[in-house]
Amino acid sequence: MTVTDTPTRTGAALQLRGLRRSFGSAVALDGLDLDVAPGELLALLGPSGCGKTTALRVLAGFERPDEGQVLLDGEDIVPVPANRRDTAMVFQSYSLFPHLTAADNVAFGLRMRKVRAAERRARAAELLELVGLAGHGDRFPHQLSGGQQQRVALARALALRPRLLLLDEPLSALDARVRVTLREEIRRLQLELGITTVFVTHDQEEALSMADRVAVMNGGRLEQCATPTELYERPATDFVAGFIGTMNRVPGRAVGDGLVEVLGARLPVEVLGARLPVEGPGGTGDVRVLLRPEALEVTAGGSARVTGTSFHGPTSRLRIILPDGTDVKADVPTHAAAGLTPGTDVSVRPQQRPVLLVSSAPTGGAA
């Protein structure tokens, strides 16, 4: 049976229940609860020190939690040694054996499990073809590019048909063009094989473009776990609102009846189950209004001023100082930005759509 003939698997169900892990006085995981559906690709995303790598190491068996359970298809695997878990991990640093060929690296785990030589060779060849390296089996790691080495590492992880695939920032050592190509390949393989995958990254673009859902962590806790679209458009906490993408915080005033006045416009307030510290629909008071750069419309002439521009292909980002001193960012079509050079006086208005609020905080700019 070839790799592509392998019956489609639904993947394993994974649950993290009350995981806690401390290193001295430093708390890495603070009661982490998380569910991963069978066959899902879940990204763990957050700032340095948020606990995402510790969580992955607990899943792999390299760290033992102080408390909590890791349930794989209902079985708690915390007591199971790393080498006996039905999991596989791909590391940032490739971790290939330099004295082994690509094929022998892929087949290494099979050799440790006493699989016959002929079957090992066939399996390695199939997997190298699957990851786009057919004909490279006799090359040593130093004869391969970084992207090719990471493909070998991925093939090696898949060789044992694990129920759970763990990816520890596997693309961070690669250049930008190779990263884009390889993340598309990883996603294609993950979907094709139906394997449950947990992917740690510090790169928001990778997380939002690859994952079915993204778990945003902060201080060892889960801030929000949702689809990329929901995270971006409906952040559940102030931290997520500022961490995912770019968010402007503009002073406004809640005027009651679920409306807020901001930048000369009156807009409806979107209340997310009181998850953000939002003034209630019937409340009033000073607030910060959360506005994405693409939600601001900029026209020449007015009391705001452009202070900088940056080119982003079809769009350009303008940095603008509002009359009250608030610094905001606005994304406009590049052709429209040609006349909005630094020093140009402009008007800034929000698009007519619901907005999120954060109550009574000092005015800031873009996060």
Rank of each mutant, 00 (worst) to 15 (best):
L127E: 01
G220W: 06
V216I: 11
T87K: 01
D324P: 04
S48H: 06
A215S: 12
E297N: 03
T341Q: 11
Q352A: 15
F23P: 00
A173E: 11
E223W: 02
P251Y: 07
A102K: 11
L42F: 00
A207L: 13
A155F: 14
G280M: 01
V269H: 01
G49R: 10
V332H: 00
E279R: 10
A43Q: 00
E230N: 08
A337V: 01
R85S: 13
A159S: 11
M217F: 06
V328T: 05
E126P: 06
L160N: 09
A102R: 08
T344S: 14
A173G: 01
P314Q: 10
A28T: 09
L263S: 11
L357S: 11
G302R: 09
A153P: 11
H312Y: 10
G313L: 04
G280P: 01
A122M: 09
D345I: 00
G242Q: 06
R123T: 12
D86Q: 08
G194W: 12
T315F: 07
P98E: 03
P268E: 13
T229E: 05
T229Y: 05
M1P: 12
L29H: 08
H335M: 04
A336P: 03
E126T: 06
G135S: 00
D73P: 02
V58G: 07
D257S: 13
S93E: 15
V78D: 05
D86R: 03
D66W: 02
L171S: 07
L100W: 09
G219F: 08
P323V: 10
V278F: 01
V328S: 03
M217G: 02
A274E: 13
A153D: 06
G49M: 10
L171F: 13
T10H: 11
A361R: 13
E206V: 11
L263C: 09
T201A: 12
V131K: 05
A155W: 04
D104E: 15
Q150R: 01
G68P: 07
L231P: 04
V346R: 09
G285F: 01
E270M: 06
R116Y: 00
K114A: 13
L44M: 12
H142L: 10
G256H: 00
C50E: 07
G325I: 06
F23V: 02
A304N: 02
A361V: 14
G282M: 03
R183A: 07
S347N: 10
F243E: 07
V240F: 00
Q15F: 00
Q352Y: 02
P162Y: 01
A215W: 14
G109V: 06
C50K: 12
L34S: 01
G302S: 07
T326I: 09
T101S: 15
R161E: 14
A159R: 04
R17Y: 08
